[in-house]
Design a binder for these strands. Sequence first.
DNA 1: CGCGTTACCTGTAATGCGGTAGGTTTTGTT
DNA 2: AACAAAACCTACCGCATTACAGGTAACGCG
Lengths: 193, 193
Amino acid sequence: MSYGDAMTARARSEERRAEIVRAALEVIAERGYRGASLTSVAERVGLTQQGLLHHFPTKEALLVAVLQERDRWDAMPAGRLRLDLLASLVEYNAMRPAIIQTFSALLGESVTEDHPARAYFTERYVGVRAGMAEVLRAEYGDRLPSGLTPERAAPLLVAILDGLQYQWLLDPESVDMPSAFRDFLTLLGESTD
Amino acid sequence: MSYGDAMTARARSEERRAEIVRAALEVIAERGYRGASLTSVAERVGLTQQGLLHHFPTKEALLVAVLQERDRWDAMPAGRLRLDLLASLVEYNAMRPAIIQTFSALLGESVTEDHPARAYFTERYVGVRAGMAEVLRAEYGDRLPSGLTPERAAPLLVAILDGLQYQWLLDPESVDMPSAFRDFLTLLGESTD
DNA sequence: CGCGTTACCTGTAATGCGGTAGGTTTTGTT
DNA sequence: AACAAAACCTACCGCATTACAGGTAACGCG
């Protein structure tokens, strides 16, 4: 067995799958998960619907791959994150509406019954809140200037991020998401200059 | 023409429509708008899908009625609202997950392209932000204790409300929505006792 | 070259969807 | 009683959806 060629074969396959996941992200952003048909995803990468099912045996398997892709994406800054980096991240996200729209749509859908992404988001938010609490503790210690503990402030921080995204997606002209987020950081006691 | 009887006829019709709208609210909470089939709504009120279409000629017409129902519902406190009343409203909402789930699901869907509720939410949020700014101005004047103007704080207030709802819907055990909201009011400079 | 695996495709089944057409029962008015 | 309108049903259409089955062409390997 020639390792090199075997790898390129596998690599080609992986790249195809990644291509499909990218297309799925787009279509989900446009139509949500329920509205995202396999056919429309397949066409975007030049496949038939059945050809797509060769790479992902079911629609749900494709969704799982999409969610894993996200995990891989923001696993990066999980190690060490600071509040001002978070503000920069919001600013960066404001230039990439597609990805935000994908996961805002998925989050909205996931609160419905039996949604395949529900468990994912539930568990994810537990982790995200814990991560945010950690960041806040690193910044302020066990009490924020307002007297709140990091654990109580963390859900607020997460809520602001999500809530601002919806307002911004609906009406980007009216909502300056990065500024608003910095306003919130000011409320928490952070001077952002 | 006997007015009394004409009214009861119309009233019966109105009540049937209201019954259908109520059922639609439930089904949308469970499956979202795209996932809410006319058949499932119809069965819940003991009708066939075609019988439902007699009262609402299209699925979108039904959605419009649902959105109008909401407008009528929270038009009440629009007149005079105070921050502490808002906190009570959050507390009240926390006991009625169904209605929150309906509109959280709709909001999530509405960010996708060509969604029939998109314009509704976009316009609604403009109004809600303005209303919140008004409330804040009534409470604090032109500057909040933190130095923010009411117009800058309003999107944050709205974002907190929405964002907390998603976290709470996904994991009510882990997120105490009313307490968290009061925490935010504290951040704004309000003492909530 | 021959062979197995991968990457597709065509064909099709099974189901569900929103919506139309047209008839029938119920109800209210005169 | 006679008529009209509202409420609701059966029957159907056309289309979209996920998924399965089976065939085929290309490719890499020994």
